[in-house]
Amino acid sequence: MAHIDYYFATLSPYAYLAGMRMEAVAKKHGATVTYKPLDLMTLFGRTGGTPPKDRHISRIEYRAIELERQSQKLGMDFNLKPAHWPTNMAPSSYAIIAAQKTGGDVGALTHAFLRACWAEEKDIAQDDVIRGCLEGAGFDPALADSDLMGSADTYAANLEEAYANGVFGAPFYVVDGAARFWGQDKIDDLDAHLASLA
């Protein structure tokens, strides 16, 4: 059975645009998934990337065009300039890490946070938003307060692991520690790769 390590940031617009397509592909092929939220800005700094606000104007303009284009293509509600971006990614990431330990639909929870930011004008660093996303995805809202130190350690470890595994952006999918796929537009390639393993 194949395994996907999914590296992402809860503020990534491209992770939002991935929707639940990776989860559908994983289910189709019987692959398991570990969700690994991380500090994307720190990862950029360590892998030669540049935070969006610091990029050349040509890149900033094209990013805006591409995000609008992809959201329309996918039929997803999308706000190019959400009211609460950027914000602190750590609290929502800790909630995902805690939820993953209990089982349940972590994909739905992850997408709930991304949708809250990019389509619902919510601040995913706020406790009420975190609890609402947890509850909406079928988790106990109290997970927002559970094992914060352990979740913080895992969050930091995810960054180090991503760096060691050649990850440099989000969303990023690594299959069985080897095959790498970067971007929401590579999910079809991920699908084909998993099919080739059957």
Rank of each mutant, 00 (worst) to 15 (best):
I187A: 04
W85Q: 07
P82G: 06
S58W: 11
G136D: 11
H84I: 02
E66T: 14
I187P: 05
L11C: 02
G48Q: 02
H29V: 07
F181W: 14
A137C: 06
N88L: 09
I97Q: 08
E68K: 12
V174G: 07
Y14E: 11
Y155M: 05
E121P: 03
M89G: 10
A2G: 02
A95N: 07
H193G: 09
H56G: 13
A179H: 05
L114H: 10
R63Q: 05
E121N: 15
R131T: 11
M89C: 04
E23R: 13
T32A: 14
R180T: 14
G30L: 05
A24F: 11
I124F: 07
Q70H: 13
I4D: 06
G138T: 13
S12P: 03
R21S: 12
E121W: 01
A157G: 01
D128F: 09
L80W: 07
L80D: 10
A31M: 03
D153Q: 09
A98D: 04
V33S: 06
A112C: 12
V167W: 01
P91Y: 00
K36L: 13
V129G: 00
R55N: 00
Y16F: 14
S92C: 06
S71H: 09
F113H: 12
A98C: 10
G138D: 14
P86F: 13
G49H: 04
N165M: 13
V33N: 07
L134F: 05
T87R: 03
P13M: 01
H3F: 07
D77A: 15
L134H: 07
D147I: 03
Y14P: 01
A178V: 11
G75R: 11
D191A: 06
E161D: 15
K73L: 15
I96L: 13
A98H: 04
I124V: 15
P86Q: 14
A9C: 10
I130G: 06
A83C: 06
Y173P: 01
H29F: 07
A99N: 10
L74H: 03
L109V: 13
A15S: 15
I97D: 04
N158R: 01
L74T: 00
Q100I: 03
D77L: 11
L190N: 10
N165V: 05
E61Y: 01
F168I: 12
A178D: 14
H193K: 08
P37E: 09
D5C: 06
L40S: 03
A99E: 08
G107M: 10
H193S: 10
L143G: 02
A119Y: 05
L134T: 06
I187D: 06
D185V: 13
V33D: 09
G132Y: 13
L74M: 12
S93T: 03
F113Q: 12
L109D: 08
L114Y: 08
E161W: 03
T32S: 15
L67F: 02
A98W: 02
I124E: 04
G177M: 06
A198W: 00
T10V: 15
Q72V: 14
S196I: 09
T50K: 06
S196W: 10
R63V: 00
E66H: 14
I4W: 05
V33L: 10
C117M: 15
H29G: 09
A156D: 11
A95E: 09
P13Q: 01
I97A: 04
H29M: 08
R115M: 12
L194Y: 02
F113A: 11
P91R: 00
T87D: 04
A179P: 01
A83H: 12
R180D: 08
D191G: 06
G103V: 05
R63S: 01
G138I: 10
A119F: 04
G104K: 05
Y35Q: 08
